[in-house]
Amino acid sequence: MTALLSIRDLSVRYRRDGVEALKGLSLDVKTGERLAVIGESGSGKSTLALAVAGLLARGVKIEGTVEWKISRSRTPHSFAPPSVLPDISPSRGEIELSHPPSPILNAAEGEPAAELLISPLEGEMSGRTEGGAVERQLSHPRDTIPLLGRDIGFVFQDPSSSLDPVMPVGKQIAEVVRTHLKLSWRDSYTKAKTLLERVRIPDPDSVLHTYPHQLSGGQKQRVAIAAAIAAGPKLLIADEATSALDTIVQAEIVSLIRQLVAEDGMTLLFISHDIALAATLADRIAVLRHGELIELGETRQIVEAPRRAYTRALLDAHLGLDAEPLLDRQGASP
């Protein structure tokens, strides 16, 4: 299997506290796999997700490379208005280009693909002007640069803050469709309705015209997922996407993500603090601690035969429905 992206020696340091959030992390994400990245708070798992999506704020010090292999045929001449998209062109940031980007033959798919080194880093979400983006455009074709929204779908933990509170949800999804797929508003809305059906929102016709605050937490997260997959991205990043939800809704969202990833042939990067939840979904699990990759392996190997003591401690700390209750360990009873 080929790698969709290769992360090499990625270090990220937030200027504010000077602590390295990621310390020389190297990781391959294979095309079509479901990779879970787990770790406790401060492990750098969310920083990794943001770095891959090019969402790290300006002023964050970044070293290393993120190498993408995105087949050219997949996204013909569709590019997004720079005003709403992060700038992930390689001319910015403290990134060393080891060699100039050159087109190669993608053996697995038998079609031309561009291998390019980009800075996924130092991007920002807004305030980017048309002129500013054009200035930074590089020599390689624009449609080979992975763009958030088009090539990468991102689902955040809190849908209340990732959705625009004053825009109907249908318009939010249609906007993504229109921007990346170059459809008319009418077709975009039709596509938005289909997307709402795909994320199993009941009565999509009326939900198209509702505002985020009128929906429950689970429904909001479904809408956020619909917007994330609207342009048919190759990579879906879910950053603690179910952590704010209750157990039942969490299970529904996880099953929805599993189904959508399978149907669209997406690659999934699932960021979570919950090793048990990650194990229900992922093919492979990467365990992060203090910004370093502690262990990486097939889910079954990680769960049944972890090589590192830290991974074992995480597994032992999980309180499942078959674990020995703490009450018994202490022998306390009223």
Binding site: T247, I248, Q250, A251, E252, D274, I275, A276, L277, A279, T280, V303, E304, L315, H318, G320, L321, D322, P325
Partner: peptide, 24 residues
Amino acid sequence: RAVIANPQSAIGKALVAATPRLTR
């Protein structure tokens, strides 16, 4: 433990079914 091992209500069953478990 009795309720979680053998829930009777629909919501109890749904909660138990939705709890992620590690099959180690």
